[in-house]
Design a binder for these strands. Structure first.
Lengths: 260, 260
DNA sequence: CAAATTCTTTCAAAAACTTGCAAAAGTAAA
DNA sequence: TTTACTTTTGCAAGTTTTTGAAAGAATTTG
């Protein structure tokens, strides 16, 4: 037999894939539940879930799994995708006001920035640099000059991240960078993936103006990897629910806050 | 019998093709089911499905098969030309035979290479480098490691091209590069766009084995930009209609020709 | 910290797949 | 029609993949 390095399955039949995803439909399911429900052993369920996880269709947790709600490229699992949709649209609208014709802008991954990408039809001629395949799809036929940062593809966020993004990014100078984030605290920005953190920091260095798009729910949240300091930011666009505490914190760092 | 590299059937009768596709109509069917249903041996069913798969009409999985079109999530972007589609599928099938588990491969733009990308599910673990957004979309959920070459986006071909692709490409070493082309003549390969030519040449330099996928209609055609010399190629995969003239030419350059 | 649960890895059996071969079924030319 | 040739088919041998069980590692819980 061939050496397959721990990858234990070639393909999952579409039928069972379908059934598992359906079973995962309503929240978290345990391995035992899935096993009895589909009439196969727990070992098999584990292998199936491995396959689904590898393709970013499900996320495993100790004892079970949840569906990776394919909400257009947002890394949210059991959590709601569109709970803050209204705020995100508002924030995108405000970000749009910061853009001028002929700008060179950078678009990060994340649903808030994607909402901004959808609005760029309002302009005639922009140079858009991005590491997000979602944003790129959105802008493919826009007529704007589109530059993709290469790198390793991260299925969960549908972005290119990691060290390979460096050489290409170093060759560019960006006017306004629009970034999203998982969380923001006193000590800086937070992201789930180290590769993503790497690329975010890189882009901040190469940008004249760094603009963070973060709804108020992001404040106070942390995650695995630190992806930049507050001092790296020039402008933060958020919604009106931002607490006074963070308002003060940003002010102290001389960061312009756009709200309302 | 002729040597067909594992492809064991020339043609499937339209009548049985019809019957099998009808049987596949509603979801996944097992080989045994199909065998008893159509009254032929399982071996024959397997060969029939092989034929259907080769023409992208059905997808096989361990234990059975599903219809290709009924499955979810296929048509991401509409494919333009179905010109020479059969040849392209054949060529892709031969190209697939050159790939081994754990290879590092490069996929160029173009519909022939895209047909190859669609078949990569047959492997568990590949590293796929590409400058094609179509190929990337196809492989997003494949579980393969996917690396996108960054650069300026060229809408027509949905690829990243030009000088910006250089820094990222220079950082990689590719095992097998699968390239398409607009035309191929005595003096080399031809492409419509200088930026695309630049990137093709770059990739050839970074690849151990350069494999050109070109149906016989490409031979003798030129275009705006020269994108490489014949000497840069190691293998050419084409269809059986290749004229003796070009056969000789490739032989003289010590290029392996895979046909039929 | 230990017990209980869950996960990963390994193994062997079962199921499914591929390939080579020879017989059967087609096809085309004489 | 016969003959020579090609293609398809079913079988069988050999290979690969999937699966469930079990042992040991890792994680969670009390």
């Amino acid at each position: 037999m061939e050496n397959n390095r721990g990858i234990s399955r070639k393909l999952l039949s579409p039928e069972r894939e379908e059934r598992i995803l359906a079973a995962l439909g309503d929240g978290l399911r345990t391995i035992t539940e899935l096993s009895t429900e589909l009439g196969v052993s727990e070992a098999t369920i584990r292998r199936d879930l491995q396959s689904l996880e590898r393709r970013a269709l499900a996320a495993r947790v100790h004892g079970g799994a949840v569906r990776a709600d394919s909400g257009r490229g947002e890394p949210l699992f059991h959590e709601k995708t569109n709970l803050r949709a209204a705020q995100k649209e508002e924030i995108a609208e405000r970000a749009l006001a910061l853009i001028e014709e002929n700008d060179v802008i950078y678009l990060d991954g994340g649903s808030t920035v994607l909402a901004l990408a959808r609005r760029l039809g309002a302009f005639r001629q922009l140079t858009v640099v991005t590491n997000s395949l979602m944003a790129a799809s959105e802008l493919m036929e826009s007529g704007h000059k589109l530059i993709l940062i290469g790198g390793e593809f991260r299925p969960l966020s549908r972005t290119m991240v990691g060290p390979l993004t460096q050489p290409a990014a170093e060759a560019l100078t960006i006017g306004k960078a629009f970034l999203g984030t998982i969380g923001i605290t006193e000590s800086g920005l937070w992201t789930t993936d180290p590769g993503e953190a790497f690329t975010k920091k890189l882009i901040m260095r190469r940008s004249e103006t760094v603009i963070l798009l973060a709804d108020s729910g992001k404040f106070g949240r942390t995650s695995l990897a630190e992806s930049g300091a507050l001092g790296d930011l020039d402008i933060v666009i958020t919604d009106r629910d931002l607490s006074g505490e963070y308002r003060k914190l940003l002010k102290k760092q001389k960061i312009e806050v756009v709200t309302q």
